[in-house]
Design a protein around this nucleic acid. Structure first.
Length: 106
DNA sequence: CAAGGGGCTGTCA
DNA sequence: TTGACAGCCCCTT
């Protein structure tokens, strides 16, 4: 139904569909959106989100299972904190996509 | 209209 | 495992 939606709109929708305790990579979201190369756009889009957004942006990480923010960044700790609160476990500073990856651990 | 940047990805060494 | 290079596309000046 979102056939006429912009890629950005799709990204928002897809991210909103990420279940709790699960994480998805930018590339994966972009792929689901229909464009495997729009990974960067996903990041750009999230960046454009308001701070009071209800989108689970914290469930979006890079393909390495790591957060794309520097640890000194408040966003990093916030994201990590939220993920841990949902049951996601960080091992050596990264997440096991095998267990917490969206539609990847089922 | 042209140029630059971006929370990236995948491959090679 | 990490580091470096190139490729991809959209959005904002």
């Amino acid at each position: 139904m979102n056939s006429e939606l912009s890629i950005r709109e799709k990204i928002w929708q897809i991210i909103a569909y990420i279940p709790e305790g699960r994480v998805a990579s930018y590339g994966q979201i972009a792929r689901v959106a229909g464009c495997p190369n729009h990974a960067r756009l996903v990041g750009n889009t999230l960046r454009n989100l308001p701070k009071d957004t209800k989108l689970p942006w914290h469930r979006v990480i890079n393909s390495q299972g790591r957060i794309s923010f520097p640890e000194s960044s408040g966003a990093y700790q916030e994201q990590r904190n939220r993920l841990e609160a949902e049951g996601v476990i960080f091992a050596a500073g990264r997440i096991s996509l095998k267990e917490f990856g969206w539609q990847d651990g089922v």
